[in-house]
Amino acid sequence: MNNINGKIWLFGDDINTDLMYPQVCYTLNEDEKPFYAMSANRPGWSRMVNRGDIIVAGRNFGTGSSRPAADNIKNLGISCVIAESINGLFLRNSVNSGFLALQAPGITNIVIEGDIVYIDLKNNEIINKSNNKKINFKPLPQFLMDIIDNGGIINILKNKKLLGGPL
């Protein structure tokens, strides 16, 4: 995976899956779903996101259900989530959807909304280019990075010819 450069949107603690993928999304068309992300806690936000933007958040990001919340913010154009801590189910779902989610304790102390950050995946370092402050993140095991690099678990299953046709 290439290093990531993007403008950040700052969110607080306990941002849950139901905020990222509200109930109404379940039966919408795929292209409509992403615009409902964060509509309850931050109305209008989804329309302001540009492709490649990054979400920085506080503790316990992604707490909640197994719904495809990671897909929804990925499909909105978000390139990566960096949080103080991340719920394990959200982390798994991110990996399995080919989406990068990083835990970097202290990240919320070195950024404000609108800063540009650079994620150096080789040196496990996040650099805030707006103030030159740096922080390390805990890298994901290579095994999981490989799933992300393959575009997620569904792609891997398709490549192995383990999936069938529509029901």
Partner: peptide, 30 residues
């Protein structure tokens, strides 16, 4: 189990956690 409250099984000296649907597809296959 695809449901996020699968941790419920812990009452039975059993372990489990919620998993996303793509991951369950992998488990069903493998």
């Amino acid at each position: 189990n695809t449901d996020s409250h699968t941790i419920a099984v812990g009452a039975f000296n059993t372990i489990g956690r919620g998993l996303g649907t793509p991951e369950i597809m992998n488990i069903i296959a493998t």
